[in-house]
Design a protein around this nucleic acid. Structure first.
Lengths: 203, 203
DNA sequence: TGACAATATATCAAAGTGATATATCATGTT
DNA sequence: AACATGATATATCACTTTGATATATTGTCA
């Protein structure tokens, strides 16, 4: 029950949203999921091939006029079954690698000034990300309030500009906003921690 | 500037605390750092060998009477320099893989009941870990208040029961407690998120 | 026309993971 | 004394993941 070795399920789940190319998947993960998930090309392309081999997805070459050739993958019935099975299986706890936290822990034998420097760097790094997230949150909240469908979300959920009913749009915005909230709360916790540490170490 | 490929530096930093065997390192990471770092044998033993090859650490075989043979690694001057250099280098943002978060995001096309189930599982999993951490925190806080040196911390920082002055002990307990606080704040953020989501989805 | 960025697929060495194999020693049980 | 069990300790291996780079096409702007 490990967080690792889940790329195939992650890709399957993403394809259950909509058919996508490997490139689309990479963009979606980088833009929308980066604070709790990550994938890279070296994994995406071979995994997509394996999903097709195993019958969980199928590939369609899209060569619409004037555009570069794209391999579009869509989930099959078998893939959807597998995806749903995984959803209800027990999940492993989050796996984290936090370099600045590690540095702080290891700085215990170095001068306190060094520990303080690490915390300041941590705070600054996290604050910058928080600002980004807060901007996105504002856009999303306003969109939901106005029953709108902001470009930022449309881009992520829609490959082709295809009409979508109001209820579905609202749900997509909701999921996306809640996901963003998770990122924001995680960062707020880290900032609070930085403050606690600075308090403890003395300024 | 990536969180990955940092095992050699992590091990170097741990050896700067005290000389240790690969087994000691694994235990220390599992017990004390698991909420922000992880290492495994498959990486630890080869990396220790490489550290020795490159002159960052040296190995000493400990075969004290009646005990199983242990390979004890200690950091060299060259290793300490490398460690200190890394400490002041810029650090990459935390890298996370959170399976339950991913499942929630992907559940957007499934019935809301499924999303709720995921959140409940997430909350329960995180609450259990929080309880553990809170117990440890209590022990540590009391120890610090009483100027004591609890077995839990001694075990981690001391291989050999060697006397240590009060100031150093206090600092060790402090670093350990603050590190634990990071874990606690992270989990509290996740629990708060679960509550927000349940609120949003409706119970 | 050329420079540059975005789109798109692919590959690979190096690093990390999870699991298991092997062996020694301490403890307790029958 | 024989045996089981669990903690200590090192090691290995197939598989997965990472980071980086190579390659080519299309869109844009000067």
């Amino acid at each position: 029950m490990s967080t690792k070795q889940k790329t195939n399920l992650a890709l399957l789940g993403l394809l259950s949203w909509k058919p996508m190319s490997g490139y689309d998947i990479k963009k979606l993960v980088d833009i929308g999921l980066s604070h709790f998930w990550n994938e890279n090309y070296g994994q995406i392309y071979p995994t997509l091939n394996r999903l097709v081999e195993d019958g969980y997805a199928k590939k369609k070459v899209d060569s619409s006029s004037g555009k570069r050739k794209r391999n579009i993958y869509s989930i099959t019935k078998k893939g959807e079954d597998k995806f749903r099975d995984w959803i209800s299986l027990p999940s492993s706890p989050p796996s984290v690698r936090n370099e600045l936290q590690l540095k702080f822990f290891l700085s215990g034998k170095l001068p306190v000034a060094t520990s303080r420097k690490i915390i300041r760097a941590y705070r600054q790094q996290q604050k910058a990300v928080l600002d980004e997230y807060m901007d996105s949150e504002k856009i999303l909240r306003e969109a939901i309030a106005n029953d709108a469908y902001p470009e930022e979300v449309r881009q992520i959920f829609e490959g082709q500009p295809e009409p979508l009913n109001r209820k579905k749009r609202a749900k997509q915005c909701g999921v996306f906003m809640l996901t963003l909230r998770h990122g924001i709360l995680a960062i707020e916790g880290r900032l609070k921690w930085c403050d606690e540490v600075m308090e403890y170490l003395g300024r």
